[in-house]
Design a protein around this nucleic acid. Structure first.
Lengths: 208, 208, 208, 208
DNA sequence: CATGAATGAGACTTCATTCAT
DNA sequence: CATGAATGAAGTCTCATTCAT
């Protein structure tokens, strides 16, 4: 079973390591360019230059510029989802929220980039493929959230009734997204006070 | 104060009504195009067609495409700020939040468009002019919010201590922004339950 | 009636003389380039240069390179058809055939170009739009031919029975096309002898 | 004579059978691709894929794409010429012409392809190498034709005077080419009537 | 004031060809 | 002998912007 699961994920990686490394190089470069200039303004030429390869070569690994955009989006979404899976307690959550905010504000490159996140949501309004990807990821995250909220506290959950958990998860997601938006303006805000406020919010959100 | 603010904006309005009408036509067209295709993908030609005028004429009223983008952004921000100014009680707030969410989800054309809002925030990351505009608007809204939160309830406020109000305002803003983001995916959500959850959030947010 | 017919043809011409002149410039340039390099090898840039305008401008008058190709094809076909309409007697035909051959061989620019004709037929094999255009023109020419062959000689026709005329028209068309193909190699051939041979062929083709 | 002709072509065949097999694979693939997409639109990559070999390998057997085109043209010409060599009587000729037409129309892969034939003639207009190849083949076929037409009927010929034969051969060639052109449009035509018409044409063409 | 024709830069993409492995 | 990754040039097309009319 574990082997199978491994095989399922490893498939493309191990099948052709060289190709996968190239895809990786392209995606990293693309991510940088998209962050710097946006999906539309970033040119294939600039991505190629960042990836240190010819523009034509990228078409061996991606059908389209659009395919690259999609891949970047999927990637960022997966990364975001991984964070949710790690939640354990209410104090975790408050700390995480504050942590995310600070890292978004600092434009930590290891995290889902806030500007990219906003742009992909805006684009979802117009591109059905992106909308589908986003919706799927959004729902998956909400499912994880609901599972965590409705699990008993003995099992590392919060112990909310299921119906309540669904709406709370939605509100929580909205709050997280809002922190991402707020982070892009890099407003100066008192850290300790913010921590208290977020903490209070979270308390209420997780209360029965 | 109100007079000053009015005077600052009124300049172009009273100077030349004809020109202002033209600007208005262009901005309406541009807003539609930007919503439909995004800031970059919308072409000057499509805006001109929507505005039923020649492409060249637009350059008589706006220096370039970027100036139109900026103007649209300022416009949307002003509109958003107007809503905040009307807040009076905590029940107002909860109802407003739910109302905004539903109208964003329905893509109500009379409201600040969610996709546009996301895109302008993303763009603020890259364009200092947009960043400044957004930051100014954001701070103004927060000031209004803080004023309302810290005014005594006898004067139609909430009566929070000033230091507390500042952070609460920030958190509240984040929550509103998050609702805008959440609205673009048009997820199905139980309306009554959401109302309850938002209400509870607001209660906490406004509690002493 | 004449006025109507005039209006019908003049439509695009008189509607916007400037635009029509530009289209004409483009088409002339395109024809030259297509003759010189073929439909595929001729670049939009080379056409633009020949037409002495920027490449981008051509897209104001034609949606596509393909649209230009199509227009050129239709144009050549119309021109070809006009010749058939003028046939009156069997001596006309023999003289015309020889005349066509010589002009094809000399690459007379005022005539349907042989290389272009071959290429468009080859392309008809792959592009349904071109196939349709060619087929329509081919059939129209054959109808004209049949009409002429089956009209009584008193009315300037040949007086063949209708069923016979149909096949003869087909064979005659094939022969004409074959002369076009033969012309591209510019073989040296005794003119007088060729005239006699063509004459004999035509005699037989028009005999009862 | 036959030995000499054989020797001229045999060079590469006997020198290295392996290499010749590879060339053959490439040429078959190229022919298919050229028929499907035309000389220009067919890519080396598609030819390589059809030939089930790497793109790079083809350059071991052909200097460049143009060399492949040339080889394909020579090949098709040889094939065409082989048919002429088999002519024996006037009834042969009429039957052959009809047969060719039907097979061209049906796009019989075993026969010189009509679209390819047209394209190579068009290209001969621009590429001197192709022109030379075509002219040589054309003349060779005409010589064969003249030989047959001027041979006495006792020796399986038609018995025309030589000067007459030259022109008749030219006209006959033109007619055959015309049938090839006509075949690409795949017009519906009454088979029996066409047979009669072709027969009559041929009668006249071979008459003294 | 208004038009829309015109330009030129630049975007995406394809492809013949080469070369390290 | 064979591969296929890599390149660079070239091709089609779009678009913000200008300017003669």
């Amino acid at each position: 079973m574990a082997a199978m699961a491994g095989a399922m994920n490893a498939g493309p990686v191990t099948e052709n390591p060289r190709a996968e490394a190239q895809r990786e190089r392209i995606l990293c470069a693309a991510q940088q360019c998209f962050i710097d200039h946006g999906f539309h303004a970033a040119s294939m030429a600039s991505i190629a230059e960042t990836a240190q390869m010819s523009a034509g070569l990228m078409y061996r690994y991606f059908e389209n510029k659009n395919a690259i955009v999609l891949a970047i989006i999927e990637r960022q979404l997966e990364e975001g989802r991984a964070h949710v899976a790690r939640l354990r307690s209410s104090s975790d959550l408050a700390a995480d929220l504050l942590g995310f905010f600070e890292r978004w504000r600092a434009r930590d490159p290891g995290l889902m980039n806030a500007a990219l996140f906003l742009e992909m949501n805006a684009e979802a309004t117009r591109d059905p493929q992106i909308a589908t990807a986003l919706r799927r990821s959004d729902e998956a995250m909400r499912r994880d959230l609901v599972a965590w909220l409705s699990r008993s506290s003995g099992e590392g959950g919060i112990g909310l009734p299921r119906e309540v958990a669904v709406t709370r998860a939605f509100v929580l997601q909205a709050f997280v997204k809002g922190l991402a938006v707020s982070a892009v303006l890099q407003a100066e805000i008192d850290h300790a006070a913010l921590e208290a406020a977020i903490d209070a919010q979270v308390q209420r959100l997780l209360a029965p």
